[in-house]
């Protein structure tokens, strides 16, 4: 399918795809914002949440923060390579980023498995409801981002649609930033 001429115009000076990604992020901010504001209100109103948060695994949560930070670096490297027209190299960095995503999800899965087997299930009380929902929503974004990244890497390998490497990178950094806040909110606030 050929692209409409409309897509190639850029009155604002921001490329159309990038502008759209920024709008996606703006709407994501309010989705996560709504959830985290709700959580924060409960957290501050219920001192017992601190006791529940003590059952989370801070070490693994911290590891995950590090994993996502590192994958963010990979994403920015992929963008850097794409900027210089080296599609193949960009694709490789994207695969590394996906590797980071998978590591993140594996650790997450291990953590949840452990917590659930100890009886801390989503329906236990409001803290665990928020814990699984917020981290789960974030994990869905990780999964979605990884899938899109794989698709983009396929194109990038053939030196096509290289501008998309930057777009997925921006999205990926956003996912990283969300985790940067989720980590202290869910694990450290004791």
């Amino acid at each position: 399918m050929s692209r409409p001429i409309a897509t190639t115009r850029s009155v604002t000076g921001i490329a159309t795809g990038k502008l759209a990604v920024w709008w996606v992020l703006a709407s994501e901010i309010v989705i996560f914002g709504g959830l985290l504001c709700s959580y924060l209100m409960h957290r501050l109103g219920h001192p017992e949440f601190g006791g529940y948060a003590a059952h989370t695994n801070t070490a693994l949560g911290a590891t995950n923060t590090f994993v996502l930070l590192t994958s963010s670096l990979f994403a920015v490297r992929a963008h850097f390579e794409a900027e210089h027209g080296r599609g193949k190299s960009a694709a490789n960095w994207l695969y590394m980023t996906v590797g980071g995503a998978l590591t993140f999800l594996c650790i997450k899965g291990y953590e949840w498995h452990h917590e659930i087997s100890e009886g801390f299930v989503i329906s236990k009380n409001a803290f665990w409801s928020f814990y699984y929902t917020a981290a789960g929503l974030h994990a869905c974004h990780v999964i979605g981002g990884a899938i899109i990244m794989l698709i983009i890497a396929q194109d990038a390998k053939k030196n096509q649609e290289l501008q998309r490497v930057e777009l997925i990178g921006i999205y990926w950094h956003f996912v990283d930033v969300v985790w940067i806040f989720l980590f202290p909110l869910l694990y450290i606030a004791k």
Partner: peptide, 27 residues
Amino acid sequence: LVCAHFMHLNVEKKFVIYMLTTALVFM
């Protein structure tokens, strides 16, 4: 740091920053 240097908001058009900040302010 991530927003400014990895997402390149430091070199992005000001408009984008206003837009994202507005969303945050609403929160």
